[in-house]
Amino acid sequence: MAAELIVESVGAVRVLKLNRPDRLNALNEAVHEALAAAFAAIEADDSVRAALLTGEGRGFCAGADLNQSLGGGPRDLGASIDRHYNPLVRRMRALPKPIVAAVNGVAAGAGANLALAADIVLACESANFTQAFIRIGLIPDAGGTHFLPRAVGDARARGLAMLGETITARQAADWGLIWRCLPDEGFLAAALAVAADLASRPTQALAAMKAAFNAAGANGLDAQLDLERDLQRRMGRTPDFAEGVAAFREKRPANFTGAPPARD
């Protein structure tokens, strides 16, 4: 049986490709376990400086595999969320390296929210997004109730969740749900170029940005200002800051290494 997740390295980018195209890359236990292992490996490998998550075939991810994960009658869906979905979203958000989601087709339910857990979301023109939970009597999970109102506002978040309507990639970009909608032709190469660009940037600064953005929703202004100060103090001690200033003064491209601060 083919691996549920294809893992490849392209320079400093680790490419993760969901590989259940016959099921539109729907999530099952094996996929969750493979993703957990892949993100743990990315975090532990200093040679990896960015990740690209996409899907094989005509879909990005259709959400939970209902054929395998849901049966008839009441059941404790919270157990599956605790075991798989919440740890995955938390791991992606906490990963000290940027994640690009390249949505190459259908992104539905938890699959849509899996994409939104990435730092930068790109979608091809033929892709679409659906908060499909209402169709089977559920609420958005995998961070959906957190990501949606912050990205598109309360009114649109409620409409997307309660009506379960499908929106195009172009509409998702216009609403600010994703970063950019790109042509189908050459889409994966374009997404990989974005990930490679991120991999060439100051890794420590990108990690600090993720930490700051993660905290912003819960922090008041004073707390966020203090966090910015603390993170910036750490950034000022990184070799990449010294390199960036030197490159600016010497009018040359910077060569960022992602090395940690000389002292914390």
Rank of each mutant, 00 (worst) to 15 (best):
A30P: 00
V31W: 02
D45L: 07
A36K: 11
A30S: 14
L52E: 04
K97M: 04
R83E: 13
A115M: 06
L53I: 08
L27K: 05
A62T: 07
L27F: 09
G55Y: 03
D45N: 11
V103I: 09
R93A: 10
F129D: 02
C61G: 02
P74G: 06
G105S: 09
A41K: 09
L70H: 12
Y85C: 10
R93P: 00
A108N: 14
R58Y: 08
N28K: 09
L70S: 09
L114Y: 04
R58P: 14
A38Y: 04
D22L: 12
R75W: 11
L88S: 05
I99Y: 04
V48M: 01
D46N: 13
L88D: 03
L52C: 04
D82G: 13
A36D: 15
N86S: 13
L77E: 10
G55W: 02
D119T: 08
F129N: 02
A102T: 03
A44R: 11
N25E: 09
G73T: 05
V89Q: 04
D119V: 07
V100K: 00
I134R: 11
R83Y: 01
G63K: 05
A117K: 01
V106M: 14
A94V: 06
Y85A: 14
T130C: 12
R90T: 15
D82S: 15
A36I: 07
R58N: 13
C61P: 03
L70E: 11
N67H: 12
A40W: 04
F39N: 01
L53P: 02
A50C: 05
F133P: 00
V103L: 07
A108T: 14
G71T: 12
D119H: 12
R90D: 13
E56V: 03
R90H: 15
A117F: 02
V100A: 04
F133N: 11
G73Q: 04
T54C: 07
H32A: 11
V100D: 01
L95A: 04
A110Q: 14
G72M: 10
